[in-house]
Design a protein around this nucleic acid. Structure first.
Lengths: 232, 232
DNA sequence: TTTTTCTGTTGATGCAAATCAAGGTCTGCA
DNA sequence: TGCAGACCTTGATTTGCATCAACAGAAAAA
């Protein structure tokens, strides 16, 4: 790994609070890989050989069944994926592919498991990461089981707006068909749901969204902390 | 805590591989509580004051939104719940109530967090438990997003049969309306789905189920390891 | 016991969302 | 510049599931 790559990697949230010398010993066994867009990085059912950390680009986490496919989440720089499979030494439950060209840090699974046993700070960082991921999925399961398509979209818009600064102006960060899959609906339904938000003063042109009346949208969406608050 | 209670607690999977003296020091701050059926043990949105471990009885984990409610899972003896909230010192994302009278071990959250930092074996046990729980929710999310009601029921029957010994004879371990909520459907839909399984030689009388033709049911359900295999 | 309440089934109906189909728009590329 | 192939939208139709309603049977309470 090149020296300036190393510099970048040390800053990753996963290594926060972990001793510098230990981070470096982990990184010595790791490598950074570039992948073109649309390449499958991980396939569900395969043994978990690596822990992946995104350095650059967007990664879609998805899963398939029969001829169907659904997006579980879309991750960006700083996010890691499949910690649980690595820790338990089992197969991946989800697949992953880059939506853009990506730069990915790959940590050999065995080194991560050893790290968990040897360095308490690293163990804590892994556990915190996993706990956050766990709560994320629980929220998503509640989102799916308790809400209609329109409610999911409305709440996504509000949450995403907040994440992008809360100005009422936001960009959908990926294709609409990916968003539809993430929200658990067919692309056609997303199109129609967007149209259905017109009375709530939501304007969508391409990927750019303007929320002209946040109060109206809020009264439809009715977000609650235990589903929608990312800091909760 | 009484001495024979202590004996029971030391056997819990959560303490497997953890030094006996450390387990005892944890248990000194803990207590075992009995609750009558239908009592709410934990309410979503409340701060996580305790880690709960089921000693006896069944506990329904559920969540609400507006006037709706859904069952996330039903847990039994040996299972713990809300590790992630305790570890992160955040609020519970789900509520819990006993379906039967229960006996619950309650570990103060602060002690658990200290334990994670102080005892590497306990930290590992917690992390493994959390990783398994995480993978369970991921599977459930896939189950919800990728399958129809009928497919979910068919796969549940197969998995539950395997869990109960694989004899083709099984008992539904709780009310059908709880099962319906767990499977993400209205009780009426469960009734009709059961009727729809008649051509597949599934016989249901009350809570007792007989699978007369597992092959036929398998061809409908089409289970896959990354959703249905509990050991994966 | 009788009465009441709860659980589960069945029928009728309405709605949400998937599917099928066609056309328009944008993008990358020859 | 023009074409091929995406992405997205809109319309028509079907399907899956929820809802409403009524009732039977079982369990709990009087």
């Amino acid at each position: 790994m090149r020296e300036d790559d190393l510099q970048d990697m040390r800053q990753l949230p996963l290594f926060e609070g972990v001793g510098a010398s230990y981070v470096d010993s982990l990184l010595r066994n790791a490598f950074v890989q570039r992948f073109p867009a649309h390449v499958e990085l991980v396939h569900e059912g395969d043994p978990a050989d690596f822990l992946y950390v995104i350095v650059q680009g967007q990664v879609e986490i998805y899963a398939g069944y029969r001829d169907r496919e659904t997006t579980i989440s879309v991750l960006g720089p700083g996010n890691s994926f499949i910690i649980a499979a690595v820790l338990l030494d089992r197969v991946y439950l989800k697949s992953a592919r880059g939506l853009t060209p990506t730069r990915i840090l790959m940590l050999p699974a065995a080194a991560v498991r050893e790290g968990f046993a040897e360095d308490a700070h690293f163990a804590r960082a892994l556990a915190v990461d996993m706990a956050l991921a766990y709560r994320g999925v629980v929220k998503e399961l509640k989102n799916q089981k308790l809400r209609s398509s329109l409610e999911r979209l409305a709440n996504w818009l509000i949450t995403e707006d907040a994440r992008q600064g809360g100005s009422g102006q936001l960009e959908i960060p990926y294709d609409k068909k990916i968003l539809a899959s993430r929200l658990g609906m067919a692309p056609e339904v997303l199109s129609r749901s967007i149209a259905a938000l017109l009375p709530y003063k939501v304007e969508i042109r391409g990927r750019h969204v303007t929320l002209h009346d946040r109060e109206a949208l809020l009264s439809l969406a009715r977000p609650i902390a235990t589903i929608d608050d990312p800091s909760c």
